[in-house]
Design a binder for these strands. Structure first.
Lengths: 236, 236
DNA sequence: TCTTGCGTTGACCGAAGGTCAAATAGAATT
DNA sequence: AATTCTATTTGACCTTCGGTCAACGCAAGA
């Protein structure tokens, strides 16, 4: 449990200039690709390194040559999967014009489609967030804080510039609230395992889902929205 | 990964009346007690069933007689640990009189003490929420939804009765928001692993923490508080 | 004392992560 | 082409650990 820190194995030789050999690099990518699928389909502990190797037609030892450990391999898989998610600021310009909260609503509405198109990445995200060891979770959190793969930082800045957000709150606070609630809301929306009863209590009624999203965005607006946007007549 | 469903091993014999034998029951309790410590100290995967047995002076096989699997043992440990947490409605009467949001503030202020007194349980809670397999996480979520060990339900009812909460929102929605944000906020407050930068960015400044709590409660008030309580002059 | 059966044991199994010396393939050199 | 040198791959092997099970011991009843 002490070795995830660097997921790159030492034996991966570097050239004088510090870049890894191209051949190595390519193989690493192939391994990660297959690993992502396995971890997504079976979860962390049930995914077998041997299976991954077998599917690639290589020896198990080879995988460990490129990634120090299973943890390390998963971490790489997680990073790659998360990178493929859209950033918040990638919403269509037309939506962005309507402000930060409309962007949120836009993404929540699209959540299910996004996941349907890319369920493997989403699954990895889940496994990384809830289904691994705490030691790995620490590493993941560090990554999320540092890399900001969803572009929260830009997004909050955007909201601040537009005057959509309260100015009496720390930006970090606003960002955290957004991250936390959006994450959990999406989890609940998508995975039965994590629904606290919001969506699957009385059967899956589609319009109920719409209503929930509406409520949720309104709620966020109250919490962190500026006075200017506050209760704008409950939707034009 | 298919066997957590019932954590009780079949061989735990029941008497005709359905109650377990008292001897068995006592031993189960002892095992769980030790298991809690081990899981808390080492995390899920690093905790060894053999060590737990050894510390109890019994054979490893005996543990599996009482709990179907390691998963099952952990689940029992988790349940017991979580039960020991205080319910929200256990705040002092004087605090309750001041309303729902003051109760929240009260608990947030006490979080650190609570955890210092009872860090083993808290650690188990963490491991259960972020550091196990997804399959187990599902079971845990079911348990949390069904048992409501923090008494969220009562607490929200309390808020509704007092008129502290908005009435245009579904109770489930309010409850979920509270659960989600309080949970994450406490996580960030307590464990470096999960802090998104709220508390450990510029060194641990105590008064900053106070300010954060203040901000956070105010934010919740805006989000889900009734008009009546809305912005009551920024603290008397 | 004999019988019955629950609870305990500890040797054993199999799965899976991880290691490493030897083999192989690829580039560089002559 | 032949040789040398090095990166990469291999697969047999090791270790750890969850989980099983046939045998055993012990307490209570007959």
């Amino acid at each position: 449990m002490e070795g995830i820190t660097s997921s790159l194995a030492k034996p991966t030789q570097m050239r004088r200039d510090g870049k890894p050999r191209p051949r190595s690099e390519a193989k690493r990518a192939r391994i990660v690709e297959v690993a992502i699928r396995h971890f997504a389909e079976r979860g962390y502990s049930a995914a077998r390194v041997e299976d991954i190797a077998a599917q690639l037609g290589i020896a198990k030892g080879s995988v460990f040559q490129h990634f120090k450990s299973k943890d390390g391999l998963f971490f790489e898989a997680y990073k790659k999967a998360v990178q493929s998610f859209p950033k918040y600021m990638q919403a269509p310009a037309a939506v962005q014009e309507r402000g930060l909260f409309e962007v949120l609503r836009y993404w929540l509405g699209r959540t299910e489609n996004m996941v349907r198109d890319n369920w493997v990445s989403y699954r990895i995200y889940l496994v990384g967030n809830y289904g691994t060891d705490l030691a790995l979770r620490r590493e993941i959190n560090r990554f999320l804080v540092k890399q900001d793969p969803y572009g929260w930082h830009d997004f909050v800045s955007f909201g601040v510039k537009r005057g959509d957000l309260r100015t009496d709150l720390d930006v970090d606070m606003i960002g955290s609230i957004l991250e936390w609630t959006m994450d959990r809301f999406q989890d609940a929306l998508l995975t039965e395992e994590l629904d606290p009863g919001l969506f699957r209590k009385s059967g899956p009624v589609p319009e109920e889902k719409e209503a929930r999203i509406e409520q949720f965005v309104e709620l966020l607006r109250r919490a962190i929205g500026s006075e200017k946007v506050q209760v704008p007549g409950k939707k034009a």
